[in-house]
Design a binder for these strands. Structure first.
Lengths: 329, 329
DNA sequence: ATGAAAGCGCTAACAT
DNA sequence: ATGTTAGCGCTTTCAT
């Protein structure tokens, strides 16, 4: 067993309460006693037992993050930023991957929620009722799920999409395909924003899908894009866009000469593709800070400034977009 | 506060110990009492307080994993597999990203080690002494670090590299560049294995570097490859390989027509690149199972079957390798 | 300014 | 088969 507060007390020749005070509320103890205690604690390598502390005052100094799939390159930077943000405020971040399966998510929440002071739930598959009920029991911040009375960070693609529409329009594109990869997930805001933005810019939009957000979806979409006579594609995310790029190459269509391609998320994939992928960026640090600060606020029972916080997005123009081809090939 | 064992006891009209037994060691209690207890527990939604349990018997049912960088796409599948493996055995997995900085790693270990029953340390930056000392205090499994008396899972690239050499040789390549991206990290086994394998196959090897394992490293390496008159490149990892592909395209060299490219890790990048990347695969599930099972064994004080466990690798031939060009361009 | 002691929720002796 | 109780390490009244 590790060194306890009792051992430090004995070594310093004081009582355990004095040790506790010397370490937690230093001003409550005589300076010289304090020195002696701190020295003893250092010498013995004392550090408080989190389980005891947690049992005593019901806080774990740990936050939970539930995400759909850590192998989606969108999430690692967000996790990293959240972990850093939490760490600075004295919290450990516990991530769990729900694999987008509701049963797993429930089980994971059950296992994790007892070990943390609060939860960030990203794009949860759970029903509104369950989420509301959970939020009643423990501090919860939702990302991209709307539930009355529950705090939310909402990642809005509106700006980025508007910029993408503007960008394509300026390059002379008129017909664009949107590859919907949202499957049957609850949040349908993406395709709605896209319809609206493209409408507003007088671009004709052909929606195909919904499919799953996979590379293969892009492979599948590529010939459809050509068949529809479109000159631009907006893909559900970067991964799908990579599939489109891959298959367009196989079909002998050049990018951006024949077809322009736009992704969403600005993951690692976008910056390493050839040509590099024009995409819509969501700033991971911003989402992370907002979600974590909001949650920590909730944990400390500070009422949130606002129920819903918006995070914006913007277009990152790179190599896969360019002037629309004039004549058919 | 949540529902405690005392509440269940009262509801079922028995003592707390009976509740504890009914739930943990059911055969020690009368069938009908047990029913009553279980019913009460269910009705109240009881679940044991992990902090109390942990304080009581010194175990947290949590394992820690320390990795250099979760945004390296090599790690997410491994984390996911480890989490799943741990979960099946009743453990939660707590990941922490050390960002490859020794100071952070120390701080993180200090924060995390009190909250877990044991640690998996991946490619730790710590000195051998520190690692040995740490392993003396808590169960530790190292990945890709060799320390006497400490358990290790060793990911060996030997097989995969030999297959890569064989593969390139068969395609008629004679001169290959290895782009070393290992920086100044402790484990230098990669470049050693490569020298040996290429020697054994009578291939001439030009090593460049060491650089950092980044996309830009590949970009930097591409013209050097051409200047050296090589027809093949083995990159430090997939990310570096992507940089090579990107810049070769910019330089007008075709892949695999002019140059063949091989990566290492078989990350998502390899499967989504165009052309898809020939690479060396390490099975994430295998590493995960071995490391987690080894660690859980240590936690339960089962002596490990072996001090060091090897994990193999194999070549995944894809689209970036082909016959060597005969005449100079 | 310091010490003694209660109590957080749980499990495992130790009774009965 | 079940109940009573000590004790895990810590913080915080409550005394002094």
């Amino acid at each position: 067993m590790a060194v306890t507060i009792g051992a430090v007390a004995k070594a310093a020749g004081v009582s355990v309460s004095t040790v506790s005070r010397a370490l937690n509320t230093p001003d409550l103890v005589n300076a010289v006693t304090r020195e002696r205690v701190v020295a003893a604690a250092d010498r013995l390598g004392y550090s408080p037992n989190p389980a005891a502390r947690s049992l005593r005052d019901g806080r774990t100094e740990t936050l939970g993050l539930l995400i759909p799939d850590i192998t989606n390159p969108f999430f690692p930077p967000i996790f990293k930023a959240m972990q850093e943000r939490a760490r600075r405020q004295g919290y450990t971040l516990l991530v769990a991957d729900s694999d987008e399966r509701e049963a797993d998510e429930l089980e994971t929440i059950a296992a994790v929620s007892k070990k943390v002071d609060g939860l960030v739930l990203w794009a949860s598959m759970l029903t509104e009722d369950r989420l509301a009920e959970l939020a009643g029991r423990t501090p919860v911040v939702l990302v991209n799920r709307q539930v009355p009375e529950v705090c939310e960070v909402h990642v809005s693609l509106t700006d980025g999409i508007a910029q993408a529409a503007e960008h394509l329009k300026a390059y002379g594109h008129q017909v664009c395909v949107f590859v919907d990869g949202n499957g049957n997930r609850p949040d349908q805001s993406r395709s709605k924003s896209i319809r609206e933005a493209f409408d507003a810019h007088g671009l004709s939009l052909i929606e195909i899908g919904p499919y799953e957000p996979r590379f293969e979806t892009g492979v599948h979409a590529a010939p459809l894009v050509l068949a529809h006579g479109a000159t631009a594609v907006l893909a559900h995310n970067d991964l799908v866009a990579m599939g489109v790029l891959h298959q367009l190459a196989a079909l002998g269509a050049s990018v951006p000469g024949d077809i322009s391609v736009v992704g969403i998320d600005d993951t690692l994939l976008a910056s390493v593709s050839t040509p590099s992928l024009t995409t819509i960026r969501i700033d991971p640090d911003e989402v992370a800070s907002l979600a974590i600060d909001l949650l920590i606020g909730l944990v400390h029972e500070r009422p949130p400034a606002a129920q819903v916080v918006q995070v914006g997005s913007r277009l990152i123009p790179r190599g896969t977009t360019g002037p629309a081809r004039r004549e058919p090939r």
